[in-house]
Design a protein around this nucleic acid. Structure first.
Lengths: 208, 208, 208, 208
DNA sequence: AATGAATGAGGGTTCATTCAT
DNA sequence: TATGAATGAACCCTCATTCAT
């Protein structure tokens, strides 16, 4: 059962309670939108397209969301939640800076490929409303600082060579964000395989 | 004299011949559009914005270009020209696979930061018309294969460790393409400095 | 107990028989709609607003009315019923043209302020469907002629000076209809006080 | 040549300079919109209707105005300008409170019937945006106070009997505003005739 | 008797594009 | 060469209305 089909199933499945139904459908909407935003971009995605894919008409979407902006904002929130969880997991499993960094990297990529859309590392920061942008930017900056701190810790404990922490984060996050534009869930490599390769490249890039 | 001012100067400079004038202005248009596309995206950039920045009205642009698509297409061509030149330069200066790869990487980043827009590594492949997309995709695939061949050569001559060539290319090109979204020519790091750091990270990522 | 609360009470009160219940709730609906139409206008009032004020959801309204038009039409009917009753009362109490006119005026204003909404002299004739408009126009014209006849009677019996009967009716009805836009039941003047002042102004306007 | 035709002529007339042309057309737009708002109401008037009457397509209107709200706001401004001019004229011509009041009343009605739309005493205060409403309300309140002051002056100088100044203003302005709903420029009475009748009724209503 | 969910029609607004001047 | 003016297509969003439950 492919990702798209799973979403449509979620939209039509009817065994749950009202509330569960609502949340399932809303999530299906967000995932499909995330997928579309990732592959075509926010402005190039019309709500008509999203609705058609979900098998409903455009106004039906407004039962679940306030407007198009809210979809984009919620997608960012979902993505950042995955980032937070990846951090938590990494802190628990890694024993030094480098291990924490690599654990985060792997988890971050894998979770984005499996949980939102079909690889919906979210991309369109600039399309956010000023108010929403502020919120997203705050979390994003915090995450960036967390990554930098991990790298600095690694440089201190000797597990990471001397690098520019900030640019190293940008370097890696660029590689990851860019996946949204080329990743194909039906392609030759699975999300997990890509996560492994990317993590390995990062490993060598920063190892002493 | 900053990049923006230089473009406006190009638009208004009047000593050249008709033909030179036309080409200068057309190039100024493409650069400004590339800059805008890079920072906000193709669909979020209106021709009104571009025209206003250049100090003309929207219909004036149509004297220099056929339509908005043509701008995007030409920007891709410019970017790919820079890629080709970076390859040529790299083949001349590198003595083994790794040196060629790194030479290309550095040249590619630097030239994009100095010659088109203010770092206009072009980003919106999906916004191209089918016809244009085919052309751009062909060149892009060729460049990708060139990079892969360089990596394979490096693995053969022992200058590059065993990696997945294709994903390594995607990894690095992601990091580079992503620059368009965050690079600030007035920021703390120059394009050349970033090129150095990114090349160094790539170096360690692939070195044996 | 304020007007709004009374309506909500009507909606929720449950001692009556089925039929009484139905009629009470339907009337509560019409009154609240009349109030909303009067203050914001027909097109600016959404059924969602009306439903929310009544503590129900929008589709529930359709149990009591056929559609939004019907509400408007029924409001006009209610208002015109009040007009008819005011005429009956005036004919009984007035002894000459002027007394009849003033009696009607006072009764008309007072009844509108107390019985429908919080002063819902109905205003949106133009928003009626052609079919409904025809019906309402017929009654309205009849009422207008009644008023003109009263004025003419007054001019004949010497209690009213020579005026243009039709424009005098328009003059006064304009003043009254306009109340819907500014009357505030919690304001400094009660409906009865305003009725008195307006009747007095009319009195002097037409007295010999 | 009727009012509607005159507007269309204004739209198409081409002898003036660019700037004059622009202003003429913008004014024609505002007048036609004022006419439509007056007879059907703001929300019931679609820009498509306005455009069609002017012989253009809807987006063409946006060359002259920012959005629908701006039209409504500008109409209020035009109307209030006429009010200001009527006050000035009245202060000059009237020798006591009553004369000033009546002079204002006559001028106000006449100018609205001849200068904006076909009697576009503006009506839809509640449809204004909060920001615009604040501005319009300030001017409206000032005008209301001016009228009250005139009435008080009349009561002081003995030319006006003891009345409630505020309600008297509301009474008369209601009669006048209501004209927008029934006045027909092709009807039996001209604007000037109605102005005369209404002023006469006001005169008797307030005279000692 | 009332609700959750969905639809179709319509309206405001933006924007690439054209054309006469 | 460049502008003013206008258009058509597309999009977001609202709302009255329906229907199964």
């Amino acid at each position: 059962m492919s990702g798209r089909d799973r979403q449509l199933a979620a939209w039509n499945d009817t065994v749950q309670t009202r509330d569960q139904q609502f949340n399932l459908k809303r999530t299906a909407l967000l995932k499909e939108a995330a997928r579309a935003f990732s592959s075509q971009g926010y402005h190039a995605t019309s709500l008509d397209d999203v609705a058609k894919t979900l098998g409903v008409t455009k106004p039906a979407l407004y039962y679940y969301i306030k407007n198009k902006q809210e979809i984009l904002f919620e997608c960012h929130m979902l993505s950042q939640d995955l980032g937070d969880r990846a951090f938590e997991h990494a802190y628990k499993t890694g024993r030094n800076g480098r291990e924490i960094l690599l654990s985060f990297a792997k988890e971050f990529i894998e979770s984005h490929n499996s949980e939102i859309g079909d690889c919906a590392v979210l991309v369109e920061f600039q399309a956010l409303d000023p108010a929403n942008r502020k919120i997203v930017a705050a979390r994003r900056d915090k995450a960036q600082h967390q990554m930098q701190a991990i790298i600095e810790k690694g440089m201190a404990d000797g597990s990471i060579r001397q690098v520019d922490p900030k640019l190293t984060v940008f370097f890696f996050m660029g590689a990851v964000n860019w996946m949204a534009r080329w990743f194909d869930k039906d392609g030759p490599k699975s999300g997990a395989e890509i996560a492994k390769v990317f993590t390995d490249l990062l490993d060598h890039a920063v190892s002493p």
